[in-house]
Design a protein around this nucleic acid. Structure first.
Lengths: 130, 130
DNA sequence: TTTAATGCAAACAATTTGCAGTAGA
DNA sequence: TCTACTGCAAATTGTTTGCATTAAA
């Protein structure tokens, strides 16, 4: 069975994730971590993120062609609204959404996480009728 | 204004997308297209896919670290159940799901698409208590 | 004819991996 | 001690781009 070790760099990555409210990508997390521990490598950040995602503590948000962005899983569940134009990601409170039922799922499928993303165009990017 | 041309390779990509029921990635689409038009390049496939996605006819499905997968947008809206273990993607009929309301979205955000993914473990991959 | 679309190859970007050294337990 | 974790760099992968050419309209 997997034995997990508590390390300085791992703690730093976790702290950055918990602190940041900007859905950082691996590079941003790496940069933030380096402010405290300058020697931490990108590879370690990736490995740590993988472990956290596998453990279910962190959730990923992916956009075609762009870097994967990570989100610490807090008490409040929220989803995202992604602007196709500027790429900005807004949080959408899940409380207002109806609970997503595990209906019609393939037999035996066990849901561990639900990703709900609203793709669209945000206010500032709304195409103008020039 | 953008002027769009109807080309042989574009038609081939579209046909593959419409035909395939397996959420193919760019490489798979490329391979399928080449069976008919051996000279089509991967670059063209990517450019065509970008155009189709921008046009809203095709929807993308992204998974961290893996290739983006594309889905032709049919009459029936459906979502996906993604197995974290084997990466397989199952379709989930959206009819059974409650309409996702555009609540709590940031002001002025215009939703063009909703991505709903159930992450989890499929029947065949259910971890056994060895 | 006009110019968007193509093929190719090189450029990029994001993520993964091998390996020898470091440091938790 | 024992071995998971780390840093580094090289290797992969997925995707984008520049440019001369081809072919829709």
């Amino acid at each position: 069975m997997a034995m997990v070790r508590q390390t300085r760099q791992r703690a730093a990555v976790i702290e950055v994730l918990q602190t940041s409210r900007e859905h950082p990508d691996a590079a941003a997390i790496h940069a933030a971590v380096r402010e405290r521990l300058p020697s931490v490598s990108l590879g370690t950040v990736y490995r740590t993120l993988d472990a956290l995602v596998a453990g279910g503590v962190v959730v990923t948000l992916e956009r075609a062609g762009l870097a994967t962005r990570y989100d610490w899983r807090e008490g409040t569940v929220h989803h995202h609204a992604v602007c196709r134009a500027c790429g900005r990601i807004f949080d959408v409170d899940a409380a207002a959404l109806p609970a997503v039922p595990s209906v019609n799922l393939p037999g035996g499928f066990r849901v561990t996480d639900v990703h709900l993303e609203f793709m669209g165009v945000c206010d500032g990017c709304e195409p103008r009728t020039t």
